[in-house]
Design a protein around this nucleic acid. Structure first.
Length: 573
RNA sequence: GGUGGGGUAGCUCAGCUGGUUAGAGCGCAGGACUCAUAAUCCUGAGGUCGUGAGUUCAAGUCUCACUCUCACUACCA
């Protein structure tokens, strides 16, 4: 048994997340957590809302709310959306929690002791009308390169050129539209990442074999370009106060405190459950044996492979408490939406709360993982979604469960039949399983979600092939015992299919396992060694009553696709 | 502009350190079966592996050039 710590990138607070966010961090982390628990590992899966920063303040302002109240509300909304999708967090915390204030301030103090903090003065755009400093992208104006009139201060959307807000012609605040903006000097703390670059490179290279190329290549790219020091404070009201003379009214940068919330949320978990957070995070207190796995979209890779590690290594260098670095890191590409990106700010795509209102969570979980954006960006289309659900879930799995349980009710009094001897067909399916089950587990252990889903489906399909081969309905006419063998094996396959389905489609899996009376304690993946896989075909007690579950998966009809396409604008480019 | 992915059957994608007739699912065409949500099972058609060179006994797999596409590019997170 291993101890596995899992975190998924913290969803930002400014709205319910879309399917791209779900597919790229929370959902795969959940599927992995579930699979590892089923394998008997000691798993701790932590997530939280990421609540600080300019967008949170502006979103609250737009909603006419106090930012703390806004975050309370949105935290609840996201927590509830997570529950709707059966995300099995051990704890879903908040980066604004008191624990995170304390820990972030402690980290900053220790980084200073380690000589990694430096004060610098920088120039930034200030809006008098908004009474706030504006991040580059919140300053707009005319592009000096192409004369596009709504160019953002960081980059022009029209010609793609990277800009500095100072270069904009006729700059104005994107928040209020006010042209009363000026350049002001402001003092900030910088994290001296540059002096950690060599250490970071050695560490990243040590993971070149076990991280996805996407992760190492992004990290090395930044290192190759020369890691720059990064400001870790901001001129904002909402956030974690900087305890330093001359920094009154300033807070830590959201990207400094957010990953620290992985740790502080674990502290909050411990507080609530009586668990021991230090054994998960403190390498000087038993966390050395923990395997820590992070899940994130590719946009987050630089922060998780460079900035946060700098924080951890730097803090550790100060002596005293020693914290754990990530061991394995799974990075995802994007789910794309009809030629473009999902966008929270522009409302493009399908959001978690909308998704759950039109189809059960299992449908989304299955489709998003079977088509996970692992090697590449993955296009979401309604047709593909329909196909995944109807073909894989309804036809292959749902129909299998339905056909054999109904047949058992019709011909064998609704119990697992006795009688008969296993023969060549049972040997065939046993051989299939003895090859496929270890492959399935290997895919989960390697966090290859497309392949895990593909193998899961292949095992279900093998069940259908087994029924074709053993054909109990044919034997029933001449040899009831022979038919009993097929029905018995078939019902045991139903149980097995439910057991392996649990990480991906937990709700349907529970219905299936209830239908064939598998007790909670027997739903794990302790298959033993796979030489004994034939026992899986006779695991249910003979004579055990079973009952067909209600329709497991309702097919998605063409007219629903038409309706959803209209509703969500899918099909537009 | 720079950097990094990717371009493999109609569609979505597998193909680790180069090695027998390039694979899967869906879709399509035939057939089988009738227990089942008109489901399932079998068989088949279909690809000059983006383009052009090169290295090698041998390249989808390595090198170079070209082309298309997506992403990242550091004060949005």
């Amino acid at each position: 048994m291993a101890r596995i710590l899992i975190t998924s990138a913290l969803p930002y607070i400014n709205g319910v997340k879309h399917l791209g966010n779900l597919a790229g961090s929370m959902l795969p982390a959940d599927v992995y957590a579930r699979a590892m628990r089923l394998l008997g590992h000691d798993v701790l899966y932590i997530c939280a809302t990421d609540e600080h920063g300019t967008p949170a303040e502006l979103a609250a302002q737009a909603a006419g709310m106090d930012v703390a109240d806004y975050c309370d509300e949105m935290h609840q909304a996201q927590k509830s959306a997570g529950e709707d999708f059966a995300l099995s967090y051990d704890y879903f915390g908040r980066s604004s929690a008191r624990s995170n204030h304390a820990l972030t301030q402690d980290f900053a103090a220790r980084l200073e002791d380690a000589g990694l903090i430096e004060e610098r003065v920088s120039k930034q755009v200030y809006s008098n009308a908004d009474q706030r400093f504006l991040p580059d992208r919140y300053v707009e104006g005319t592009c000096p390169n192409c004369d596009y009139e709504s160019a953002r201060g960081d980059q022009c959307d029209n010609c793609g050129k990277l800009l500095d807000p100072i270069d904009l012609i006729n700059p104005y605040s994107a928040v209020s539209g006010s042209k009363d903006v000026e350049i002001r000097e402001t003092r900030h703390l910088f994290l001296r990442q540059s002096i950690m670059a060599d250490d970071l490179r050695i560490w990243v290279n040590s993971h070149s074999a076990d991280w996805p190329p996407l992760a190492t290549s992004i990290a090395l790219k930044w290192l190759d370009e020369g890691l720059r020091d990064r400001a870790i404070t901001r001129d904002l009201k909402w956030g974690i106060p900087v305890l330093r003379q001359g920094f009154e009214g300033k807070v830590f940068y959201v990207w400094f405190d957010a990953p620290i919330a992985y740790i502080s949320a674990t502290q909050d978990w411990a507080e609530k459950t009586g668990g021991d957070w230090e054994s998960w995070w403190r390498t000087d207190k038993g966390a050395g044996e923990v395997q820590y796995v992070q899940f994130m979209g590719k946009d987050n890779v630089a922060f998780h492979t460079l900035s946060f590690p700098t924080t951890i290594i730097g803090t550790n260098n100060a002596g005293g408490d020693q914290y754990k670095l990530v061991d394995n890191l799974k990075a995802f590409n994007w789910v794309t939406w009809y030629g473009g990106k999902f966008s929270t700010s522009q409302g493009r795509g399908v959001f978690m709360d909308q998704a759950i209102s039109i189809a059960p969570s299992d449908y989304w979980r299955w489709h998003l993982m079977a088509n996970a954006p692992e090697g590449n960006d993955a296009a979401f289309t309604w047709e593909e979604f329909q196909n995944s659900v109807n073909s894989d879930l309804a036809n292959v799995l749902g129909n299998f469960v339905n056909r054999i349980t109904k047949y058992a009710v019709g011909k064998f009094d609704g119990v697992v039949p006795d009688g008969g001897q296993d023969g060549e067909h049972e040997a065939w399916i046993a051989a299939e399983l003895s090859e496929r089950l270890p492959a399935l587990i290997a895919h989960y252990e390697a966090r290859e979600f497309r392949k895990a889903a593909e193998q899961t489906r292949a095992i279900w399909a093998a069940g259908n092939e087994y029924l074709t081969r053993s054909a109990p309905w044919t034997h029933y006419k001449t040899d009831v015992d022979q038919a009993a063998v097929g029905v018995r094996a078939g019902l045991n396959l139903v149980a097995l299919f439910g057991i392996i389905a649990q990480p991906l489609i937990p709700d349907a899996a529970a219905k299936i396992l209830n239908a064939v009376g598998v007790p909670e304690g027997n739903r794990t993946w302790s298959f033993g060694d796979f030489s004994g896989v034939a026992d899986l075909l006779d695991a249910l007690p003979r004579g055990l009553p079973i009952s067909p579950p209600e329709l497991l998966f309702t097919k998605i009809e063409d007219d629903q696709i038409v309706k959803w396409t209209e509703m969500f604008g899918g099909g537009e480019v």
